[in-house]
Design a protein around this nucleic acid. Structure first.
Length: 322
DNA sequence: AAAAATGCCAACCGCATGTCC
DNA sequence: GGGACATGCGGTTGGCATTTT
């Protein structure tokens, strides 16, 4: 059966975090950087299990998180990615660096699933608008060709995007992690329905990011390790990561191309430009999922449903409903 | 105004996966 | 190679907030 869960210990507190706990956690991470979660409860005196600490940090406290108010574009991204990837929320979140997997999952379960159900039931049997049920969709060969075309275009865009001249022309080389982080934190505080206590913590984090490049760097290493695989790579230099940030922006465009997005909305542009350290790392050239990987996966047996769905549910069609 | 119903989201749980010795 | 431990991920739930009756 394996070992008992870490949270089974007696004296481990559960339930909502208090501002005091948040501050304890943040100040500890400020000093030591994220990671080694096992040691966090002991070293901070928090009566929380390590998992709880990690979750609290990654889903709530870490800088650069944007909360609430999903934009139309984000909605479309999520819908499309969900069709592509299924309920792989962490993978989906890697394409929306400022959103946590938990946030996206919640949003999907509470908003988008219903929306889509409504749409699908409303259009069932009506193939006009190009929105028919999967069972009567175009043939496998047709959608595979369509998909291959998309992927080909995306690859082309990617290679263009990653060409040196494009990278140096993007004007993002002045991007500094701290500024990005600050703006993100600010926007998070503005747009969300945070409890005031959490806003305080956001302010605390602002100061931290500004004052502690070392911490900011370590901080960046926590996000989406499975995808980023950033072990030992100092991806964020003390002066920021112009090239990688650029890659991120361009890759977003590439992804946009893959999905046929016409343009990112302003909020997305802002996100890209004011990217937090971890956000820029998300956008490192090795992540999110490389297209080739996605491509391989797409042609894997198990995802035919998603592909069928995609073939019928293009973003353009979908956009009519949002 | 109060009770009931519904929505929403932070947090928990347990399994999967990665890493280290 | 394999066991123990640490971390990540996705599904689920508890409880607060909001809306409806």
């Amino acid at each position: 059966m394996g070992r008992p869960p870490c949270c089974d210990k007696e004296g481990v507190k559960k339930g909502p975090w208090t501002p005091e706990e948040d501050i304890l956690l943040v100040s500890y991470i400020q000093e030591h950087g994220p990671g080694n979660w096992r040691a966090v409860p002991t070293n901070t005196g928090l009566l929380r299990c390590s998992k709880s600490c990690r979750l609290r940090w990654t889903n709530y406290l870490r800088p650069g998180i944007r909360r609430g108010n999903f934009t139309d574009h984000e909605e479309k991204m999520i819908i499309h990615l969900q069709a592509l990837l299924g309920n792989r929320w962490a993978a989906i979140a890697s394409y929306l660096p400022q959103r946590t997997d938990n946030d996206i999952k919640n949003y999907w379960n509470t908003h988008l699933k219903k929306k889509l159900n409504k749409i699908q039931s409303g259009t069932e049997g009506h193939s006009k608008d190009g929105f028919s049920s999967p069972s009567q969709s175009i043939t496998r060969g047709q959608w595979e060709r369509r998909l291959q075309t998309d992927i080909h275009m995306a690859k082309q865009a990617l290679s263009e995007a990653l060409s040196p001249e494009k990278l140096s022309n993007s004007g993002l080389s002045e991007l500094k992690p701290s500024t990005g982080c600050l703006s993100n934190t600010k926007s998070a505080a503005q747009s969300s329905t945070y409890a005031s206590s959490t806003e305080n913590i956001a302010r605390l984090l602002k100061g931290w990011v500004r004052n502690s490049p070392k911490s900011a760097r370590s901080n960046s290493a926590i996000t989406q390790n499975s995808l980023n695989n950033m072990s030992g790579t100092d991806s964020v230099s003390s002066e920021g990561t112009p090239s990688k940030a650029n890659n991120g922006v361009e890759q977003s465009e590439t992804f946009e191309s893959l999905f046929g997005f016409e343009s990112f909305d302003s909020s997305h542009s802002d996100t890209s430009r004011s990217m937090s350290p971890e956000a820029s790392l998300f956008q490192d050239e090795s992540k999110p999922l490389p297209l080739s990987l996605l491509e391989n996966w797409l042609f894997d047996e198990g995802v035919s449903q998603g592909k069928e769905f995609l073939s019928d549910f293009s973003l353009d069609d979908n956009a009519k409903f949002f």
